[in-house]
Amino acid sequence: MKIAFVINQTHKEEAYYTTTSLALKALERGHEVFYIGLADFYYDPEVVVGAHARQVSPHESIQTESDFIHVVRETEKSLVNLKQIDVLWLRFDAADEMISRPWAAAAGLQFAELAQQQGVFVINNPEALTRASNKLYLENFDESIRPKTIVTRNYADVQNFFDKNEEKIILKPLKGSGGKNVFLINKESAQNLKQTVEAIARDGYIIAQEYLPEASKGDLRFFLLDGKPIEINGQYAAVRRVQPENEIRSNVHQGATMHAAEIDENTLKVVKLVADQLVKDGMYLVGLDIVGSKIMEINVFSPGALQQASELTGQDFISVIIKDIEHKIHDRKK
């Protein structure tokens, strides 16, 4: 099987990324791996969608994630016809491209759509990813699992929302990732509300959300594969992310630590309320960020922390995913 991963840029990939673990596991199972940057696609009038890709085959010298990243970076690009690829896996962070390469993410999705039209199995569905390119995607799901939210660029709207929600809200960019520009505004910091709104609004729309008290204990990153929880021996692919003291963000990039997650019936009920729509949208691998009984974000581009979930539980969730793809490709080729 030939699996191509679409990433932002090769030199920005790291050994600890979930994408790296997925690629290494595919190699270990005998598959060929290709890395395609968002600037590497190719199209010609003969309706051929291709890419200048870095191709890596299984080799005894590649034993670890660090080995793999080193080999990928040292491999020269070659032009590949995407019709020859079995899986095109979109694993880039669209928010990372907003400032320096605002064209990159949209172009990547367009090329992925063309590849999908030619019969390539694309993860996740690029048409749905276009609709899910910012946090408004969550508003398509059951109201009971969503925190109270408004989206605006107007300070008066935010002030009104602040007053209605006990003067304690979260502000963040509509399009963003990694916990960047996320702020807690309460009575003590209310004097900074206007300044904060103006700062976030410089780059686009703002999301204002109610503050959930359970967030003080961190959040839960919970993975779904084709609409189903990834489970082995009663252990779920999930981690609890706990923020450092005096920090509201549970993102690892902001200093949060990973802990084993306890999954109860309430969590599974919340997950079940979004599963059918995710399958309908073609969202094959998804990471849900859950606080209490609310989903704060639905991560559909490049959700991370799968390898940490495996380490904390002692279960190989990465293999479950690669094996499932193998079955899907086998069925498609029948």
Rank of each mutant, 00 (worst) to 15 (best):
F141A: 07
I185R: 11
E127T: 14
F223I: 05
A208K: 02
Q110H: 15
K77W: 04
V239I: 14
M296F: 12
G204T: 08
G292T: 01
E32W: 11
Q195M: 00
K323Q: 15
I232H: 03
K172N: 08
K175R: 13
V71S: 02
N8G: 11
M98A: 05
G227P: 06
N192P: 01
G108M: 09
N233K: 11
G119A: 10
I7W: 11
G227C: 12
A112K: 09
I99C: 03
E139Q: 14
V320Y: 12
Q209S: 08
D264Y: 01
Y16T: 11
T130K: 09
R54C: 03
W89P: 10
A39D: 14
I207G: 01
E262N: 14
M1G: 14
L171E: 04
T152V: 02
H11G: 07
W103R: 08
T64E: 13
A53V: 06
T18K: 05
Q159A: 10
Y35P: 09
I232M: 03
F141M: 10
E60S: 11
K228W: 09
Q307A: 13
A305C: 14
I85E: 07
L138Q: 09
G282V: 04
K25E: 12
V6R: 07
Y155K: 12
D163N: 10
L24V: 05
H327I: 14
M296S: 14
Y137F: 14
V291D: 05
P102H: 06
Q307K: 15
L27P: 10
G218V: 08
K2E: 06
I206G: 04
Q191N: 13
N81I: 15
Y211I: 03
A94W: 07
N81F: 14
K77F: 01
T10E: 05
E167C: 00
T64M: 14
R241G: 02
V320E: 13
L174C: 12
Q63P: 04
A51K: 11
A238N: 09
I248W: 07
P102E: 04
H253T: 15
V48R: 13
N81W: 12
Q307F: 13
E265I: 03
E113C: 02
L88I: 04
Q116F: 00
A115E: 11
K228L: 13
A261Y: 13
R131W: 08
Y205S: 05
I150R: 04
K269M: 05
F111Y: 15
F5Q: 02
R153K: 08
Y236G: 01
Y284H: 14
V271T: 00
Q84G: 11
G314M: 03
I207M: 10
Q243I: 03
N124G: 09
E113H: 01
E46H: 14
D93Y: 08
D163G: 10
L138E: 00
A275I: 01
A190L: 03
T313M: 05
I322T: 12
I321P: 05
M258A: 09
K164I: 03
N266H: 00
V197D: 06
S21A: 12
L268C: 09
P147W: 10
L136I: 12
Y17C: 12
I62F: 05
A275T: 05
M296W: 04
F41S: 10
S100E: 15
A238E: 06
R29P: 02
A26Y: 06
R91W: 02
V48Q: 07
V197E: 01
R249W: 11
K228Y: 09
D44V: 10
E28H: 12
P244D: 00
L288P: 07
P126R: 09
